[in-house]
Nucleic acid binder design. Structure first.
Length: 459
RNA sequence: GUCCCGUUCGUCUAGCCAGGCCUAGGACACCGGGUUUUCAUCCCGGCAACAGGGGUUCGAAUCCCCUACGGGAUGCCA
């Protein structure tokens, strides 16, 4: 085990944003890669919006993506509590240290952190007023992604509000010190704040952790400017859960958001990702999230799934849509899925793709109908197929037998191949013009269903 | 305004730190062709980028400077 201790410190808002998930994942990957500890710390100081449900969304999302934490909610750990709302005593104690060192003062009921350096007054263009500023020594941040970043703070800042609650900058630093965090991997929006944090670490006489600031995930320019927000489509992990994406695929896609293994690998199992992951390979530039790529990766995972597992994911989706009885024969389900799995790119599209295997109440696609009927008189063609296929016994209803029956049908009409009957037949039994391979589809459907639907078309 | 960060195909990116192997590679998307006389799969092909300008150098996507653009910070939000 290494001494690496990283943390993910979300504020439960009721959403699990893809950017947060990425930050969590990178921390988790780094912990697993280095055989260190991954700490989950809940920043629930804003009582108004931090509810039980909000925390639940977060924890469920973490687990769904397979990110387990070594210390944190529900499991505890030796550096707890892991909820900021329960760490008041610790914050008071650390405030005392600062006050003792003469680094605080009170103003308007709030407690400020006092910077060291020459003081002067200057008109501030942003605040549109005269303000007291400090010529503090520049702080040097050695960022694992950006390199050396130098930035100087110029104003004292609030660490305890007038209502007595500590601010983000303060609790963040105190928690990182007391939880002995060695690496802080977080979004770039915190890079400018880091000089504040380093000032605080220094004031406490603590060594700042290794920082690594992740590039931001920007929204689609068509949707506006700035970083991706929870209102943007595709930005919430919950959305992928609801759409039945495979968690491993989502995790893989999220890992690729600003990181890559340095070669052409994209679809990787989690062990591979953990092994390859390193902070130095993280991108500097901001990225735009591409849903199409996520879908592609998801499909790659879907194709590789054993049909048993595929059925495990698919069954609830089909049941939800009312296509499948709870106790529907597992073997039959798997036979259907086996011929669909390679053709279909998402679980989400499955009900539409294969619903007709399970119910007679399936929609008829008009375009497919037009296409199928172009081949000739549909009632006539259907009755020809019906006549031919009814000769195949239920016990011998196989691809081979069906192929043979179609062959004989063709021969009887002086055709070399039976393909003129195929589109019509497919349409008659499924209502659409595309789907699984034709003969296997008929075989899996079974004699009764196929003949029944052909009869209907034959009139 | 000030400070900080960034900028390679439409998108994600490799290459940049250690300049020549880059006529800039891969993937997604898109377009075309093929297979499957179904198809959303699969196969083949195509399109398409070093933000701009100066330098340094025999040689720059790679090093330096400037400009432009994008982003972030500048909260008693986190």
């Amino acid at each position: 085990m290494s001494n690496v201790r990283v943390r993910f410190a979300p504020s439960p808002t009721g959403f699990f944003h893809i950017g947060s998930a990425r930050t969590a994942l990178f921390n988790w990957l780094y912990a697993r890669h280095t055989d260190g500890k991954f700490v989950l710390r809940i920043e629930d100081t804003d009582a108004a919006r931090n509810t039980e449900e909000a925390l639940d969304v977060l924890l469920k999302g973490m687990r769904w993506l397979g990110m387990d934490w070594d210390e944190g909610p529900e499991i505890g750990g030796e550096y707890g509590p892991y909820f900021q709302s329960q760490r008041g005593e610790i914050y008071k104690e650390y405030l005392g240290k600062l006050t003792e060192a003469g680094r605080t003062y009170e103003k308007d009921g709030a407690i400020f952190f006092k910077l060291e350096g020459e003081r002067y007054t200057e008109y501030d263009e942003y605040h549109k007023q005269e303000m007291e500023k400090v010529r503090a020594a520049p702080v040097e941040i050695d960022d694992a992604i950006r390199g050396k970043v130098v930035r100087a703070e110029s104003r004292d800042f609030v660490i305890f509000r007038a209502d007595g609650s500590p601010t983000f900058h303060f609790v963040n630093v105190v928690d990182d010190i007391t939880m002995q965090i060695t690496h802080v991997i977080r979004g770039e929006d915190h890079l400018s704040n880091t000089s504040k944090h380093v000032e605080l670490f220094n004031a406490f006489g603590a060594k700042p952790p290794q920082f690594a600031h992740l590039p931001l995930i920007l929204k689609d320019p068509k949707m506006g400017k700035g970083k991706m927000s929870k209102r943007d489509k595709g930005s919430l992990i919950e959305e992928y859960q609801e759409r039945h994406f495979l968690p491993a695929a989502v995790r893989n896609a999220v890992a690729l958001l600003g990181w890559n293994p340095g070669d052409d690998r994209e679809v990787m199992d989690i062990g591979e990702i953990i092994e390859a992951f390193d902070i130095k390979d993280i991108q500097k530039g901001a990225a735009r999230f591409d849903e199409a790529k996520m879908a592609h990766i998801n499909f790659q995972y879907l194709k590789e799934l054993p049909v048993e597992t595929y059925a495990w994911f698919a069954r609830p989706v089909l049941t939800e849509k009312g296509l499948l009885e709870e106790d529907h024969c597992e073997d039959h389900l798997q036979r259907v899925l086996a011929i669909c799995q390679e053709k279909i790119t998402s679980i989400e599209a499955l009900p539409e793709f294969c619903g007709y295997f399970f119910t007679d109440d399936y929609p008829v696609n008009e375009k497919a109908e037009k296409k199928a009927l172009k081949k000739g008189n549909h009632a006539e063609l259907a009755s020809q197929v019906l006549e031919s296929l009814s000769k195949v016994e239920a016990s011998g209803w196989t691809v081979d037998a069906l192929d043979k029956a179609f062959g004989e049908l063709a021969a009887a009409h002086g055709q070399e191949k039976p393909f003129m009957w195929w589109p019509l037949t497919r349409f008659a039994v499924s209502g659409v013009s595309s789907g699984p391979d034709f003969l296997p589809m008929l075989e899996v459907m079974g004699r009764d269903m196929v003949l029944r639907r052909l009869e209907k078309m034959a009139g």
